[in-house]
Simulated assay, not measured.
Amino acid sequence: MTEADLPAVMAIEQVTFPLDAWSEGMMRGELADMPRTRHYVVALVDDEIVAYAGLAAAADQADVQTIAVLEAHRGTGIGGAMLTELLAEATRRGAREVFLEVRADNPQAQGVYRHYGFEEIGTRRRYYDDGTDAIMMRRKLGD
C-alpha cells in the first residue's frame, strides 16, 4: 500500500467500518512506519483496490492491525490471502506470535481467524466506539 492508494482504501474503510473507521491521518501514520514496524498491502481485482490489510511487528510479536474486504468480494478468498501474507511477513520479521482483535458481533471474521489457527485468549469489554466487545485472538508461529 502507498499513499496513492489512500482514496480507495479510505472509501473501503468507511463502508466496512462505519461506526469506528480510522481517519486518513491515522492511516497515513501507519504508512509512515513502513517498512520499519508496519506492513500494509492492497488487493486488486480488475485494477481496482477491493481490499487492504496491515500488520504491526516489533521484536518477536506482531499484530494484525486491520483487514477490510469490500462486501462484493467477501467469500472469494481475498481476505484469507491477505491474512496469509500478513502471517508470512510476521514470520519473515521473526515474530513468534501474532495477535488481533475482532468484533464480538462478527462471527464470520472470527471463523476465518480460527480457520487460520488463531485461538481466543480474552475479551476487551466495550473496545469499539459503539460499545461492542472485542475478542482477542492469538496464533503462535514457528513452533
Rank of each mutant, 00 (worst) to 15 (best):
Gly79His: 04
Ala59Pro: 06
Val50Ala: 04
Arg38Asn: 15
Gly94Phe: 05
His73Asp: 11
Arg96Leu: 15
Ile67Ala: 02
Met82Arg: 05
Ala53Cys: 04
Asp33Thr: 15
Thr66Pro: 02
Arg74His: 09
Leu70Arg: 10
Arg74Ala: 07
Ala43Asp: 05
Glu101Gln: 12
Asp33Gln: 15
Tyr52Leu: 01
His39Val: 08
Thr84Cys: 01
Glu89Arg: 12
Arg74Glu: 04
Arg36His: 13
Leu87Ala: 07
Ala72Glu: 13
Val69Asp: 00
Ile67Asp: 05
Ile78Cys: 03
Gly80Ala: 07
Glu97Cys: 12
Gly80His: 03
Leu100Cys: 10
Arg103Glu: 10
Gln65His: 00
Gly77Met: 04
Glu71Ser: 15
Arg96Ile: 12
Glu85Cys: 10
Arg74Asp: 06
Ala95Asp: 08
Thr91Tyr: 09
Ile78Phe: 10
Thr76Gly: 09
Ala43Gln: 08
Ala95Asn: 07
Val69His: 03
Gln65Trp: 07
Gln61Phe: 09
Gly80Ser: 06
Ile49Trp: 00
Leu100Ser: 03
Val64Leu: 07
Thr84Phe: 00
Ala81Asn: 10
Ala53Tyr: 00
Ala72Tyr: 06
Ala56Met: 13
Arg103Ala: 09
Ala57Thr: 13
Asp63Val: 14
Leu44Tyr: 14
Ala58Pro: 01
Phe99Met: 15
Glu101Leu: 12
Gly54Met: 07
Glu97Lys: 15
Ala57Asn: 13
Leu70Thr: 14
Gly79Arg: 06
Ala81Phe: 03
Tyr40Gly: 00
Leu100Thr: 04
Thr76Tyr: 09
Thr76Glu: 13
Val69Tyr: 04
Glu71Thr: 14
Glu101Ala: 11
Arg36Val: 14
Arg93Ala: 06
Pro35Lys: 05
Arg93Cys: 06
Ala51Gly: 08
Met34Asp: 11
Phe99Asp: 02
Leu86Trp: 02
Thr91Cys: 12
Arg38Thr: 14
Glu48Asp: 13
Ala90Gly: 01
Leu55Gly: 01
Leu70Tyr: 02
Gly80Leu: 04
Pro35Ala: 09
Gly77Gln: 02
Phe99Thr: 09
Asp47Thr: 09
Glu101Thr: 14
Thr66Cys: 03
Arg93Tyr: 04
Ala68Leu: 03
Ala68Asn: 02
Ala81Gly: 15
Gly80Phe: 00
Ala51Glu: 04
Glu48Phe: 00
Arg103Met: 10
Arg96Ala: 15
Thr91Met: 08
Asp63Arg: 10
Ala81Met: 10
Glu97Asp: 15
